[in-house]
Design a binder for these strands. Structure first.
Lengths: 123, 123
DNA sequence: ATCTCACGGTCTACATGTTAGACCAAGTTT
DNA sequence: AAACTTGGTCTAACATGTAGACCGTGAGAT
């Protein structure tokens, strides 16, 4: 399973997989959402998200910067000020993501209901 | 950080968070996508996805079933046959998800370019 | 003048999540 | 009768995520 059988060598960058692996995780999505209203500083982001560790915030921000979703601006003051802002690419991603958020909001009730139903069947 | 300051007690099920925590991960998204064309059996799903472990597939499927995205049908034959199918809820999720896939496909080039640019700035 | 806090991180030890692979029971193929 | 198939579960190794200490500088409180 580490080595893919020769028959299906789709290890060549499948764009969907590549992108989904990056943004398809709680933190990236949440950070992007937090940045949607506007620029935020590191600690402000942390407060906004609430339960992310510094390390994961730092690491995920670095990834998002690498992939061109956000820019990182360091103002060499003291104490240091670092601002994170969505790039046009990042902002363009907000649209499909909003669809997702709307879907989540709309169908949340159905999901909770499904869970309850499932629970009931378990006894 | 374990205990949220009293001021911002949004521990009440934020629907977006709740839903995103579940489907906001590689495997859920990938399984849902694999199931989009139609019903699949356990091992077929594993082959389709390619690099998921049995345990994670099993666990994620159980979650998706709980949340009402898919149904699990066991045919008591031997060897056992188990089929996974999207529910209407699951199918309705495909739409915002497709938007995301289209976005990924469209902007993949830009992301790769951003990575290259970032790499170049590092030396 | 010293004590403490804020800033944006990094580092380390621990906790949790994920993986590969053995194992299961029973029927079908070799 | 030995081996393979099915859909999983279990375990031990490994990868990832967490909390919390720590850093240096400057400002405000004592």
């Amino acid at each position: 399973m580490t080595t893919v059988p020769d028959e299906e060598m789709f290890e060549q960058p499948c764009p969907i997989r590549d992108v989904l692996d990056r943004i398809g995780n709680q933190w990236s999505l949440l950070i992007l959402e937090a940045l949607a209203p506007g620029t935020l500083r590191f600690n402000a982001l942390m407060r906004e998200i609430g339960d992310i560790s510094k390390q994961m915030l730092s690491r995920t921000l670095k990834q998002l910067e690498q992939d061109g979703f956000i820019t990182r601006t360091l103002y060499p003051e003291v104490p240091p000020r670092v601002e994170y802002t969505l790039t046009p690419l990042g902002r363009s991603f907000l649209e499909p993501m909003q669809q997702l958020v709307v879907w989540a909001d709309t169908h949340h009730g159905a999901i909770v209901a499904a869970r309850t139903r499932y629970q009931a069947l378990q006894e």
